[in-house]
């Protein structure tokens, strides 16, 4: 079932998500509009999607398309003087507009986590990275320090860092971009959120490292039922990971639907343009299709 433009795609069932179809959404975004209070201009003109457990929704678009604002609205961290001026966001069935700051703090991390493009700026450069993850666990789960440390090490192992003991004791400047992003994902999944928002989380990374991070997210999703919102300017990145895609341009969702049908039968000229650019200068054109093995 394809929906164009601003309709929400509530009904489109995920292709191969392990979740039961009846599971209530972790995140439900309904016709969200975001405005700049100062200029009184609407910047995002209605975005909607439902994220059920184990599902992955992708938002693709160029910078300024409103994809990051949409994510920030879901996380309740819109920049100053931006506000949700229409529609609603529900997390676990609760309208976020009704949340108190204290309730927000309880929700962030435990229900919804997030990772962004520049992992280093979300970590303290003067504290060992392991201790920062352990601190999250200690505060959010209320466990003792020794137990928090044990769990942090386990998480570093879970995000496939080769030498968790070593990394635990290191500082941000000692780690590569790919390793930092892993550390941040470890911190984000520390308190077992049900959904993770990855906003251009692999954009600054080398392509082999990007693939490692995307593979890690796919693995977490399969293993733990983690639901994903993947935001990227690269349609192929989103396509690799997501069941459903939203194509945004200038604050508008110009196309939305199951990934395979968007890719095989793009309806909007902008989607076709994104695909044409990729086909012209991505690897697609040069790869002879591989025989199934």
């Amino acid at each position: 079932m394809r929906t164009l433009s601003r309709n929400t795609a509530a009904g489109s069932a995920p292709q191969h998500a392990p979740a039961a179809p009846a599971a209530p959404p972790v995140i439900a975004v309904r016709d969200v509009r975001i405005s700049d209070r100062v200029t009184d201009r609407e910047i995002v003109h209605g975005v909607g999607f439902e994220l059920t457990p184990g599902k992955a929704v992708g938002i693709v678009g160029e910078s300024g398309s409103g994809k990051t604002l949409t994510c920030r609205a879901v996380l309740g961290i819109l920049p100053p003087h931006f506000e949700v001026s229409g529609g609603s966001v529900e997390i676990d069935g609760t309208d976020i507009a009704t949340l108190t700051p204290r309730q927000w703090t309880a929700l962030r991390g435990t229900t919804v986590g997030a990772v962004f493009q520049d992992p280093a700026s979300y970590l303290n450069p003067s504290i060992r990275v392991g201790a920062q993850i352990a601190e999250v666990i200690r505060v959010k789960k209320g466990v003792k320090r020794r137990e928090a440390r044990r769990q942090a090490l386990e998480l570093l192992r879970a995000v496939r860092l080769r030498d968790p003991e070593l990394v635990y004791g290191q500082y941000t400047y000692e780690l590569s971009g790919g390793m930092l992003q892993r550390v941040l994902i470890a911190a984000a999944i520390a308190v077992e959120p049900r959904a993770l928002i990855a906003d251009e989380a692999t954009t600054a990374l080398d392509v082999t490292v990007q693939a490692e991070i995307l593979d890690l997210l796919a693995e977490l999703r399969e293993r733990t039922g983690l639901a994903l919102v993947v935001v990227s300017h690269d349609l192929a990145v989103v396509a690799q990971l997501c069941d459903e895609v939203l194509v945004m341009r200038q604050g508008e969702v110009v196309e939305q639907g199951p990934t395979h049908s968007v890719l095989h039968d793009p309806q909007h000229a902008y989607t076709r343009l994104l695909m044409a650019e990729h086909e012209q200068y991505g690897l697609d054109k040069f790869l002879t299709p591989k025989e199934a093995s």
């Binding site: 490692e212 349609l235 396509a239 991505g282 690897l283 697609d284 790869l287 591989k290």
Partner: peptide
Amino acid sequence: RLLVGSAPTLHARTADRSERE
């Protein structure tokens, strides 16, 4: 092989997760 297999592509899947692993 890893480099080519890691490139995000729209249609031609170059490698799957287990191959890359």
